[in-house]
Design a protein around this nucleic acid. Sequence first.
DNA 1: TGAAATGTTGGGGCG
DNA 2: ACGCCCCAACATTTC
Length: 462
Amino acid sequence: MTKSIIWFRNDLRIKDNPALHDAVKNGEILAIYIYDSNESIGQASKYWLHNSLKSLNKDLNNKLNVYSGKPLQILNKLIKKFDITNIYWNRCYDPYSIKRDSEIKTKIKKQEIEIKSYNGSLLFEPWEIKKGNNDFYKIFTPFYKSCITNILQPNPPIKNKTPKKYINDKNSLNIDDLKLLPKKDWYKKFDKIWNISEKSAHKKLDSFIKNKLSNYKNGRDFPALNNVSELSPYLHFGLISPHQVFHKINSLRKSEQTEHFIRELIWREFSYYQLYHQPQIINRNLRPKFNNFKWANSDKLLQSWQQGKTGIPIVDAGMRQLWQTGYMHNRVRMIVGSFLVKNLRLHWKHGAEWFYDKLLDADIASNSASWQWVAGTGIDSSPYFRIFNPITQSQKFDKDGEYIRKYVPELSKIPNKYLFEPYITPDDILKKCNIKMGETYPMPVVDLKESRKKALDCFKKL
DNA sequence: TGAAATGTTGGGGCG
DNA sequence: ACGCCCCAACATTTC
């Protein structure tokens, strides 16, 4: 008779959960989640985690046991208390978790307990994809090609049985005891926007396929259309697996649209891949040349960016969408990222930190890789001279100003002609629209032309 | 998954 | 009719 621990981590789902699948094969299971306070997770993530745990607990008939503290200690206690024979989990790929998990594995295996780990979060294990010379890929396109032509086609989702025989630990905490919800009620508006459960993740995918996929390739660029899947936060905590997403899309008639969407899934893979092979991606420039770069240093500018008060409407709209919804449209992420790093010349780490704290889909792999991409400090990244012009970008991708008006309502009355650069609006029009530049809406914190030139100068010196 | 500067072309106005 | 100039539209180069 086996007694198994299923240790849930970033795989908070029942279906297509390989660790759970094996854990329930025979014997009893103790389903656990450990809140590891050494692991740094952002405030928005905590909100998502809280709700995901609640939902998972429900799906497990209230049999999820919850702990807070050091995983090794807690596991050891549980092993003794319940005569545990097996432990199952799905892998994490960030350097902290890898170190923690391998330590746990070596120490607990000595006690003749079987530990098995699985791939529950990625289409491909980062060590599976390699160049001919055994080196790892540093450029996306060849990585992508290797993934989609790989003989190692991603496995189809597995069909899980729901656990039948549970072990109950009376000393389990309540999920509320973890105090994951931020003190400020800033997150309360999220409740109206997001349904957080395994079931909702699949609903989201289905409605994306039904309503958005047919115009994904082009539509994904227009923030007001929101023609994107919004699956990122579900994927991060594993409420849905990339296998489930991949196989559902892949079962449809192949088209430009499906291919492009899968390409985006592979971008997610590429971020994990880079993190695995170059964990320094989290806090060091992958191109050391940038170590000598003279970043500007200004709390005032940083704050204007964080608060969405830069005086550049599309940037402010994006930053406010993030604050209000825990999410930001991909196109706008690139615009605000370019603006922070190139126009304000602030270090990409400031951007990464803010996003990591405020995004519901905060993910150390995607976040780090994407900021290094925007900043040009990554290996396969946007070149230093690619500087987005937020005015042009908003004229192209939000030409009716729908997105800007939604998140920057104080500008809603301005005619489109001036919406994208309100500071050039003639006084009489400003007056009609009840706008006082510098009071009801800020003047731009930097001059776009000048700051662009300055950035190019500085980058060139490298 | 850019933008600006620079170069080229070609149509139309005009002497 | 022709050459010249202007300039918009497009293409290429550069950052």
